[in-house]
Design a binder for these strands. Structure first.
Lengths: 187, 187
DNA sequence: GCTGTTTTTGGTTAATCTACCAAAAACAGT
DNA sequence: ACTGTTTTTGGTAGATTAACCAAAAACAGC
């Protein structure tokens, strides 16, 4: 058993991951340290090392959980409203972009993490393509999402200030419209 | 004299700034430290503190010089080819986006730096608007540039791999075309 | 060549960071 | 209740960081 059982379900482990997420989203990658995480989680610093022996373990677990949550919210129900919300978040939620940028910065030192993150974004792009009735890899969808990402990045830079056109309006500029209900969207 | 004279023109100072730029662009913000900068510049660590007493002084000076260089290349000649090249860089040059992302991360701890960077991007956006015969603050131009930024960010994430549509083609999607020569472009 | 300023040298400092460790405590299965 | 595992505690280690400093050296103006 290389992977202990209880270790994965621990309450402490959970609080550490949550603290990590909060710090990365609200204070940025420069503030992400074992000390700060432990403080925010209300546990000892050595707990962080215990559950995540290397820094990369912590960040990787964070991203894995994030992906899992996204999958739960998006893929399972395939809900239109969830995707709509997710698109909005990309362009208008500074904390989320801070989180994303932090991950990108971490990727610079961790190719495995980069693999995870690229795969995740690719999958998300494919999901959004479906949402608009396009094939995965669709160029319009790719550009549209990158537009949102650029908006989000500038929104982060400007300190969360400034108005941003609504995602579905931006989508229109790329010829992207929601096809008539695919007859499988549960309320 | 709060601002010493020779201090600003020093060869050492220049090499420090160049090393800082290179590290930020090619290794990322996590590798930006006095030690690494000094090593890359071939000077002693205490030199870095001497010329840039605080870390923020170093980053600020770096951005100021960057802005100055951009101004020199773009505003002076107002050259179409220079802007074309700059647009290309945003979307396709991973090192430049790494540099930009690094600055954004630094802004999180330095509001003055954020002011500098936001002002710079705003000015650049205005310049590009002119380039397309639009007014500063033009929504199409803003979205277009953010598209390039989003492309650049994803390009950085994917480790500099992957093809990207040419900027002027993307511009077309926003109804942006170069007006007939304004009769003032020097070859 | 003297004088005051700038720069360089070579260290030190205090803070912070990741990682490690041994021993106590809590817990689980039986 | 005993046994082995997991977790917690508390502390340490070694690296790395930005920042500071005194004294030597280089330099500039006169």
């Amino acid at each position: 058993m290389p992977e202990p059982t209880r270790r994965r379900a621990s309450k402490v482990r959970r609080s550490i991951l949550e603290a990590t997420r909060d710090i990365l989203a609200h204070q940025g990658v420069k503030k992400l340290s074992q000390t700060n995480v432990a403080k925010a989680a209300g546990v000892r610093q050595s707990h962080v090392t215990y559950y995540f022996p290397k820094r990369s373990d912590l960040v990787t677990a964070l991203l894995e959980e994030h992906i899992q949550q996204m999958d739960g919210a998006l893929a399972d129900r395939g809900g239109v409203s969830e995707i709509t919300a997710a698109l909005d978040v990309i362009a208008r939620d500074a904390a989320r972009m801070r989180f994303f940028v932090g991950l990108i910065v971490e990727c610079e030192q961790d190719e495995a993490l980069r693999g995870l993150l690229t795969a995740h974004t690719r999958q998300f792009d494919g999901l959004v393509a479906r949402y608009f009735g396009r094939e995965p890899g669709d160029v319009d969808v790719g550009l549209f999402l990158n537009t949102l990402r650029g908006c989000g990045l500038m929104h982060l830079l400007h300190g969360g200030r400034g108005e941003i056109e609504a995602p579905h309006e931006i989508a229109g500029r790329f010829g992207l419209v929601l096809p008539p209900r695919p007859a499988s969207e549960g309320g």
